Simulated assay, not measured.
Amino acid sequence: MEDNRTENAGLELAVNTDFAGESTRLEQIRTTLERIAQAGFTHIHWCHEWDREYMYSPYEMQQIREWMDEYGLKSKALHSTKGSAKDVNVREGHYRKDYTSDWEYNRRAGVDLIKNRVDLAQALGAAEIVLHLYVPYITIQKKPEVKEDFYACVFRSLDELMPYCMEKNVRICIENLFDMPGEYMLEAWDRLFGRYPEEFLGLCYDTGHANMVWREQAPEILGRYAHRLYAVHIHDNNGAMDSHWIPGEGNIQWDKVMETISGSAYEGPLLLELSTNELDQAGYLRKAHEAGCRLDGLYKKGRADA
């Protein structure tokens, strides 16, 4: 298998581990890490089991870390999970391990699930985890009184998580989503960042989600929260679907996006969050790495000019 690590020596770049989907076969997971390294990536964004209720054993954490060490990989962030699958736009019914739940034991189980991901992040050497916060806006539109109860549950969970995260030196980053109107995401950020310190809570800027919701205004909106930007998910689309294309394959204006990121609190490496069905995974990763290198040039130029 061709090794691309000698090119662009010294350049750091991250990619998600589930770029070609998730496999429960351990040999396949190990091969994926090997291919990521051979394509020239220096860091991974662990995205396996980013959804649902899977709990990692300490032995699994150790196994993943040893594979990373074997292939010379480091960790840049890790994707946490909100808990069971559900209709995220409404607040009705109860689903397991939900940190926003108003059933106390279930909420605490959701906190334990996030703590598990904090433990995994620490084991892999990641400084932050990415977390989805779905505001049940359809229910809130019909029953405005639900909003404060929802946030009260969220605050209780984050209050419990903060000392745990601070002790482990792992920050939680709330990701912008496309499952709700943009104003609900901004309100959530304003509420959370007004309550919690940046050492504990930041934001993850997903370029594809932002393009779907805010289009050409996305860099400007990101700029308002640049001081809280500690994680990124970089990928492209045409504004209609969450395609997770390689940067340059959609219509995102990357010069403006990278200018904003370079002037923020974010410290590299840049992180690509991609998805493909291509059979030639090695070739796909090389193409993705080349695109990432181009963005890295824009990012470093912006940092130098700042």
Rank of each mutant, 00 (worst) to 15 (best):
184 Y>E: 13
102 D>S: 14
293 C>S: 03
231 A>G: 05
37 A>H: 00
179 D>W: 10
169 N>E: 12
41 F>R: 01
37 A>D: 00
80 S>K: 01
112 D>S: 10
56 Y>T: 01
127 A>C: 07
119 D>Y: 07
28 Q>G: 04
118 V>T: 05
60 E>S: 13
53 E>C: 15
131 L>N: 04
21 G>W: 01
73 L>G: 01
48 H>K: 03
183 E>Y: 14
91 R>H: 14
65 R>V: 01
238 N>S: 14
26 L>G: 02
305 D>L: 13
4 N>T: 01
242 D>L: 10
224 R>I: 06
187 E>D: 15
108 R>P: 00
293 C>A: 08
73 L>T: 01
174 I>H: 06
255 D>Q: 11
190 D>K: 13
129 I>C: 03
78 L>K: 02
165 C>E: 05
2 E>L: 07
70 E>G: 05
172 I>C: 02
9 A>D: 05
168 K>L: 07
107 R>S: 11
101 S>I: 09
271 L>N: 12
201 L>W: 03
64 I>Y: 07
235 H>N: 15
238 N>T: 15
2 E>W: 05
9 A>F: 08
105 Y>D: 14
47 C>H: 10
232 V>P: 07
25 R>E: 12
175 E>R: 11
10 G>Y: 00
92 E>S: 14
189 W>N: 09
136 P>Y: 03
83 G>M: 05
210 A>K: 01
120 L>N: 02
133 L>Y: 05
131 L>G: 00
179 D>K: 08
87 D>F: 11
242 D>I: 10
266 Y>W: 09
175 E>F: 09
20 A>F: 08
169 N>I: 06
98 D>Q: 11
171 R>T: 14
63 Q>H: 10
184 Y>R: 09
151 Y>C: 12
131 L>S: 06
94 H>G: 11
231 A>E: 03
240 A>R: 10
220 E>A: 14
66 E>V: 12
115 K>V: 15
44 I>S: 02
251 N>L: 09
107 R>G: 05
303 R>C: 13
154 V>N: 08
19 F>R: 02
259 E>S: 10
18 D>C: 15
216 E>T: 15
207 T>R: 06
195 R>W: 04
175 E>I: 09
243 S>F: 06
134 Y>G: 12
140 I>E: 05
63 Q>T: 12
34 E>D: 11
275 S>W: 11
131 L>T: 08
222 L>D: 08
304 A>E: 13
136 P>V: 08
61 M>F: 04
19 F>W: 04
124 L>K: 04
134 Y>A: 15
75 S>I: 03
159 D>V: 11
31 T>S: 09
171 R>K: 13
25 R>W: 04
283 G>E: 07
237 N>I: 07
207 T>N: 06
242 D>Y: 02
237 N>P: 11
101 S>C: 13
